[in-house]
Design a protein around this nucleic acid. Structure first.
Lengths: 130, 130
DNA sequence: CTCACAGCTGGAGCGCACTCCAGGTCAAGT
DNA sequence: ACTTGACCTGGAGTGCGCTCCAGCTGTGAG
């Protein structure tokens, strides 16, 4: 049953490097079910497979875009539940994407206000207009 | 000493409407020194002047773009300290602006990954390719 | 006069997402 | 044999930014 191709696995330290999550966060994500129980080497140390690292990449993407952990868990559960949840997952991602779009739009609007302020201060400080 | 033009003031409730901050948040911001002690009507109820509402707009802009409260306090203190702090304020805003730019860039990068996923699910669900 | 209502205060509590800690284990190097 | 360093566990603690609460007061409508 087990695959014959030896998928290279990653030590916890390597996985920290690869994903940008801290060791504590990796363990935390496992505890709360964002990732499935990770395989262990003899001695109990975790070994993350490529597949795990890829999934962590997805989580990173969702976190970076502000998805709350509860929502990520929902998504993770659907992924585990198999291909029958494609439509649901799609809907979830589409909704999230709209949120991200709004977020970007807000940031850009507010950023232009910041630029106005910056210009204001620059003008006030400039040695010009003699 | 007092101005003769009767600046219209706003009740707490109005200010909630105008700024999008909750009553509790308005009081909280006052407590921690993000805004100066607000004038009171007889009876002790707060009356926000136009000027206060505008400053709250600045705070909203900074909050929306993710500036931590501690940094906003720094900024508020410089504003209170007068025109001698223009250069410092400019530097603070410029640094913040760089952070916002990074934030937007990250969101856009990750959003394109989300789009890939969405396309993937759409393809998997589409009834096409017969 | 009575009542509802908006707002007041000081202080406690909350939700989120980690982050830290004490005390232990295992493998490899010298 | 000893030490070092990476990692383990369960559980407690942290930081941020609010948010809620009890108990009170002043104002205006009916």
């Amino acid at each position: 049953m087990s695959s014959s191709t030896s998928t290279p696995t990653h030590s916890p330290g390597e996985t920290v490097e690869l994903t940008g999550f801290s060791l504590d966060t990796l363990r935390y994500y496992e505890r709360i079910g964002l990732i499935e129980p990770v395989h262990r080497a003899v001695g109990g140390q975790r070994r993350y497979r490529e597949e795990d690292v890829e999934w962590l990449g997805v989580l990173r993407c969702l976190r970076d875009t502000g998805m709350p952990i509860a929502r990520m868990r929902e998504f993770a559960e659907q992924v585990r539940a198999g291909d029958g949840t494609f439509a649901h997952r799609l809907a979830l991602l589409e909704e999230h994407d709209r949120g991200v779009a709004d977020q970007i739009a807000l940031l850009e609007r507010q950023r232009s206000r910041i630029h106005e302020k910056i210009e204001h201060y620059r003008a006030a400080l400039s040695p010009a207009h003699t």
